[in-house]
Design a protein around this nucleic acid. Structure first.
Lengths: 363, 363
DNA sequence: TTGTACGCGTTATCAG
DNA sequence: CTGATAACGCGTACAA
């Protein structure tokens, strides 16, 4: 009885079943899939035919256990709910899929000081390589990456001096370029609407660039940095507060197109003309930036490119053992209609409009 | 030599290493993690301490091979690059993570007639359950789901009669509600900007609802359905073409807020006033819908809710064996400022503005 | 309550 | 070029 059951099981099993059906050993079946050039052409063809007929494909779990290769890569990003990361991940994943790797994406929120759990989860799940966003600020993650030598890249920020290689752009230079553009137009009094800063080197770097440029030019606005979550309402609130507290401001630098969108909407509501009364810049260059009213001056971020290059770097590290070296990409300032010369006099609120209507009804 | 190497290996191994360090057998270590109540409290505590000290955690690959449970679920969605799916996946993933499941997300594009490869990839990767978007239209996927009994839900569309249970809303009713709202305002001449229709039941259903309502009310516009990719520029082009070909149109139904956004932008450029000259509706209720000018009348889609409920349904099917039953959610029409009574006379283009400026420079 | 022994399905290794 | 055999790391009957 036992023998019979055993035999049945053997039949049901993957390689064994195919081997039996094709009249070869399990090892040969395995080779037919993994090292085809080592198998006689006829035999290989027969095996593959039999396998296809049985709808067989090798069990990746067993394969992973034995070969210690999961063909899984991990990505830990702040959120999917924000187009710029989604776009990067899309291209990362597509690129890696070409080499037979599957990507597991985890979201960590924007605070990089607490990402160890998620990174650890990716590792435990068998991730052979990691994509992270921004500087590694969690000491546990730093320690882990130091000891375990798992290929890793950080994205979004160019961080040439960090231990972990980066694929990103220079956030400091980007913000400085925005400032220079505005200063060139004659602006002297600034404010910034920034994203979350805790554990977020991108925002900190941009804020530093902002303050440095203000100090260097003896300009106004060093204290006018409003940190907000990436939500339209928060951007609107920030703009209103900003104009109320600092009516002398002539240019608002938004660290996301979302904030710029919100700022434009709020300006319309308040009767502030853009760019005549106030200049506004964005960051990211979303699809809609050129269709805002006025079209948005913003920094175009190479999101898809970062994903693709990150994938290429990790793939080379994985399959060729090529060491990974930091690559700096360029963010490009796209000049459109939301920036212009500063107004001469005081900020006058024209035809202020009531706050946006609440939903009137359901249906 | 061999023995030494062996012993070393034993030390390196997971359970064995911990077992040795804690002075117990591997089985007890395993139990300490999986069946803690079967292990003496002191022993268990010692084991867990030792394990923590060694930074040990059970290898999920071996665990999966042995227990035939991967704790992986798969999601195949059209694209990540579109907020509504990202939001759904975010909540799906969060919810499933609470039960220790990891989600693998794959993007398939909008054509459901060719999704077998991706579904198969998820299965091969060990997915124990599947989330899909919209009706299953790939015959291979249908066949697969019929034979392999893997818990699956479709989302976004309420499909009570399909084999695979769904968590979604009634797209037909949603579009009908939009139409009824506009008809109630007095509109008689319509157009629709739709997304891709090939292998996309959501769009086909909405178009059917649109045409049925037009036929039922003896209204105009049955032929005015413009199918476009979800890109701002495409939406702008559609609106311009639509007004050129059918200047009698008084209401444009957009099947995405992206199209509505584009339509509003294009109307501004063409000097068409909304809603005085033209009423426009959206679909999805993105964050920015209430901040558009005018605020957008749109269908609010329960994206996060769909993800959460889909996760709950699959989780129950997985851990409790509870059969999965379709759930219909509600999409809500949010009335804002982009819809109003139809204009009386012909459409007059006021102060037409030049097309949006190309980027003027880099920096 | 704990230990022993086996097998999950595959692939690496070595022998032929 | 092919086959036999032994792991990969874990979970679980079964015995103690």
């Amino acid at each position: 009885m036992v023998r019979v059951a055993r035999n049945k099981d053997r039949q049901r099993n993957g390689v064994a079943a195919v081997a039996a059906a094709a009249g070869v050993s399990p090892a040969t079946v395995s080779r037919a899939f993994n090292l085809p050039e080592l198998v006689n052409e006829d035999v290989r063809k027969r095996i593959l035919d039999v396998a296809a007929g049985m709808n067989y494909s090798p069990n990746p779990v067993a394969r992973a256990l034995r070969s210690r290769k999961t063909h899984i890569v991990g990505a830990a990003i702040p959120t999917l709910d924000y187009a710029i990361f989604a776009r990067m991940i899309d291209s990362f994943q597509d690129r890696f899929a070409e080499s037979g790797y599957t990507t597991i994406v985890l979201t960590t929120g924007f605070d990089n000081r607490r990402t160890y759990d998620k990174v650890r989860l990716l590792i435990d799940r068998g991730a052979e390589a990691l994509l992270l966003v921004g500087a590694v600020e969690d000491p546990e993650v730093q320690a882990y990456l130091r000891t375990a030598s798992i290929p890793t890249v950080t994205t979004y920020s160019a961080l040439p001096d960090e231990m972990v290689p980066s694929v990103g752009f220079d956030n400091y230079a980007a913000t400085t370029a925005v400032m220079d553009h505005l200063i060139g137009l004659g602006h002297r009094s600034f404010a910034m609407i920034a994203g979350p800063v805790e554990g977020n080197d991108r925002q900190r770097t941009r804020i530093a660039a902002y303050r440095d440029r203000i100090a260097a030019g003896k300009l106004d606005g060093s204290d006018r940095v409003f940190s907000r979550p990436y939500i339209m309402d928060a951007g609107c609130e920030a703009l209103t507060m900003l104009l109320a507290e600092h009516p002398g401001t002539t240019a608002v630098i938004c660290n996301s197109d979302i904030f710029a969108f919100a700022a434009l909407a709020e300006c319309r509501r308040l009767g502030v003309r853009v760019p005549q009364d106030l200049s506004i810049t964005g960051f990211d260059d979303f699809d809609y930036a050129s269709r805002l009213d006025p079209p948005l001056t913003t920094m175009a971020v190479p999101a898809a490119e970062m994903g693709r290059i990150a994938a290429d770097m990790l793939r080379r590290a994985l399959v060729e053992g090529t060491p990974t070296r930091a690559i700096e990409l360029e963010a490009r300032l796209v000049l459109r209609g939301s920036t212009g010369q500063p107004r001469k006099g005081l900020l006058t609120l024209r035809d202020a409009v009531p706050a946006p209507s609440r939903p009137r009804a359901g249906s």
